Measured scan of single mutants.
Amino acid sequence: HDVTIHAGDKTIHVHGASEEFLRIIEQAKRDGIHEEELLRLIEELVK
C-alpha cells in the first residue's frame, strides 16, 4: 500500500505500508492521538 498521511503541516508518504501499519494509524486517529505523537509513531514504524 502507498499511504499519504497528513499530520498538521506535514505530509508523510509511506510506500509499501503493511496492513498492520494501516490499522495502527487508523486506530491512532480514532483514539484522537495528537498529530505530533502520530508523527513519532509513524517514524518508529517506518525505520
Rank of each mutant, 00 (worst) to 15 (best):
H1S: 11
H1Q: 13
H1R: 13
H1E: 08
H1M: 14
H1F: 15
H1A: 11
D2I: 15
D2S: 13
D2K: 12
D2V: 15
D2P: 12
D2M: 15
D2Y: 15
D2H: 13
V3Q: 03
V3M: 09
V3G: 03
T4E: 11
T4C: 08
T4F: 04
T4H: 09
I5G: 03
I5D: 02
I5S: 02
I5V: 08
I5K: 01
H6V: 14
H6K: 09
H6R: 07
H6S: 13
H6G: 06
H6M: 10
A7R: 02
A7V: 15
A7L: 15
A7Y: 15
A7G: 05
A7K: 02
A7M: 14
A7F: 15
A7E: 03
G8T: 04
G8L: 02
G8W: 03
G8P: 03
D9P: 05
D9G: 13
D9H: 07
D9Y: 01
D9W: 01
K10E: 05
K10H: 10
K10G: 05
K10C: 02
K10T: 12
K10R: 10
K10L: 12
K10F: 10
T11Q: 09
T11C: 02
T11W: 07
T11Y: 07
T11N: 07
I12A: 03
I12V: 11
I12H: 03
I12W: 09
I12M: 06
I12E: 01
I12Y: 09
I12P: 02
I12L: 08
H13F: 08
H13P: 03
H13M: 09
H13R: 06
H13N: 08
H13E: 08
H13W: 03
V14H: 02
V14L: 12
V14K: 01
V14S: 01
V14E: 01
V14F: 11
V14I: 14
V14W: 11
V14A: 02
H15Q: 12
H15D: 05
H15P: 07
H15I: 14
H15K: 08
G16P: 02
G16A: 08
G16E: 06
G16L: 07
A17R: 01
A17E: 02
A17F: 13
A17H: 04
A17P: 06
S18L: 06
S18V: 03
S18C: 02
S18Q: 05
S18D: 09
S18R: 04
E19S: 11
E19N: 09
E19T: 10
E19R: 10
E19W: 12
E19A: 13
E19G: 08
E20G: 06
E20N: 06
E20V: 05
E20S: 10
E20L: 09
E20W: 14
E20R: 05
E20M: 10
F21V: 09
F21E: 02
F21S: 03
F21Q: 06
F21W: 13
L22F: 10
L22D: 02
L22N: 04
L22V: 12
L22R: 09
L22Y: 08
L22T: 06
L22G: 02
R23E: 07
R23H: 07
R23G: 04
R23A: 11
R23C: 03
R23K: 11
R23L: 11
R23W: 11
I24Q: 08
I24F: 09
I24L: 10
I24C: 03
I24G: 01
I24V: 09
I24E: 03
I24R: 13
I24S: 05
I25R: 00
I25C: 03
I25V: 11
I25E: 00
I25G: 00
I25T: 01
E26Q: 10
E26C: 13
E26G: 05
E26H: 08
E26K: 07
Q27G: 04
Q27L: 12
Q27I: 08
Q27H: 05
Q27D: 09
Q27F: 05
Q27V: 06
Q27C: 04
A28C: 07
A28N: 01
A28K: 04
A28P: 00
A28D: 00
A28T: 01
A28W: 15
A28M: 13
K29N: 07
K29E: 08
R30K: 08
R30S: 11
R30E: 10
R30A: 14
R30T: 09
R30C: 02
D31I: 07
D31L: 12
D31M: 13
D31C: 08
D31R: 06
D31K: 06
D31Y: 09
D31T: 08
D31A: 13
G32W: 02
G32Q: 05
G32R: 04
I33F: 10
I33G: 02
I33K: 07
H34I: 12
H34K: 14
H34Q: 14
H34W: 09
H34S: 15
H34E: 14
E35C: 07
E35Y: 14
E35R: 07
E35I: 14
E35T: 14
E35H: 14
E35S: 14
E36A: 14
E36P: 07
E36N: 12
E36Q: 13
E36F: 15
E36Y: 15
E36L: 14
E37A: 15
E37V: 11
E37F: 12
E37I: 10
E37C: 10
E37Q: 12
L38H: 00
L38N: 00
L38G: 00
L38A: 00
L38D: 00
L38I: 07
L39G: 02
L39C: 07
L39H: 03
L39F: 14
L39V: 11
R40G: 03
R40P: 00
R40H: 07
R40L: 10
R40E: 06
R40Q: 08
R40I: 08
R40D: 04
R40V: 05
R40M: 08
R40S: 07
L41Q: 01
L41E: 00
L41M: 10
L41I: 07
L41P: 00
L41R: 03
L41K: 01
I42D: 00
I42T: 01
I42P: 00
I42K: 00
E43N: 11
E43L: 15
E43P: 00
E43A: 14
E43F: 15
E43S: 10
E43R: 15
E43D: 11
E44D: 11
E44N: 10
E44W: 15
E44P: 01
E44Y: 14
E44G: 08
E44F: 14
E44C: 04
L45R: 01
L45F: 15
L45M: 13
L45I: 07
L45P: 00
V46W: 11
V46N: 06
V46H: 06
V46S: 10
K47H: 12
K47R: 13
K47F: 13
K47I: 12
K47Q: 13
